[in-house]
Design a binder for these strands. Sequence first.
DNA 1: CCTAATGATTATAG
DNA 2: CTATAATCATTAGG
Length: 399
Amino acid sequence: MDEQPRLMHSHTGVGMAGHPGLPQHLQEGTGGADGDGRKQDIGDILQQIMTITDQSLDEAQARKHALNCHRMKPALFNVLCEIKEKTVLSIRGAQEEEPPDPQLMRLDNMLLAEGVSGPEKGGGSAAAAAAAAASGGVGADNSAEHSDYRAKLSQIRQIYHTELEKYEQACNEFTTHVMNLLREQSRTRPISPKEIERMVSIIHRKFSSIQMQLKQSTCEAVMILRSRFLDARRKRRNFNKQATEILNEYFYSHLSNPYPSEEAKEELAKKCAITVAQVSNWFGNKRIRYKKNIGKFQEEANMYAARTAVNAANASSHGSQANSPSTPNSAGSAGSFNMSNSGDLFMSVQSLNGDSYQGAQVGANVQSQANGGWPDAPTPSSVTSPTEGPGSVHSDTSN
DNA sequence: CCTAATGATTATAG
DNA sequence: CTATAATCATTAGG
């Protein structure tokens, strides 16, 4: 029976301040001092409490009832409550206030921004729009791409909300259960309302930490979804043959200054069914890759030069039709520069007639080589070509 | 599976 | 903001 000393110790240690009299009584009572009945009673009661587990259930029940009905019970109960209160406060009074978890706030903000935890549909579309804007400013048109994304996002949102609801419900259930239990027990155990409150807040903390995990995994899912659907690199599609033809045609007919103006880009974009940004990308890639390894592109360059030349020749000789082969209506809008350029390219091709193809390629390349790899000052709108051989590229489109 | 081609993005500079 | 250069990530072909 070493419980007794411990109990006594806790009394002397904690209870002193509030009720200095009680421990003394206890000590005197157990020590068998003068026969004050009340002290003796208290000593007996405590003794009974200490040994209550040793007794049979019936006996214990009877004793419990006896204790319950004891005239000292309410006072003792209050005292015990106070002691517990003070003990608990001294133990964890310091860590009572929790700072608003920055991690949780971060997650909340992100979920709100992604439209998972916000209002029903507005949030989703807003997030999608924002994502679209972030992904390259294309926006609007590629809704086919985003519908899938939105579907997945709303799926995530649904799961998130049902889970959240489930947690909340469980939390409430558990809380009421515990509260009822504690209230029930407060009849026989020293439990103060404050303690119940504290227990409830502990439960809430536990559940909110679970919720945080849910939020975290939801965030991760959204991030994965984003990187899957909105990182266009993952959805890269090669342009179709025709688009590549059109772009290459423009590129090689403007080899001396392959910087399409904004208008030209729009034109090309429309013809290729791609965006202006994609046109810009294409030309950026093409320029750098061409310059980096001209040899690799010579064949291609020659081909397009020849084709353009043929088109031009046909156009010039037969009048206005004849661009049928593979670039049906390329002349429609690009006619102007095709015509203007046709001169020099045609010349070069013509002059090669006697030479091998290699010679022809070199000839075609001389142009760009002469420029030393395009004007250092990229002035896209102006089509002035510094060292132009035969016909000037710029020359008016005079039919 | 490996590799070249290719569209897109990033970093940097003017 | 645009161009370049480097790099990433995917696609297509062997």
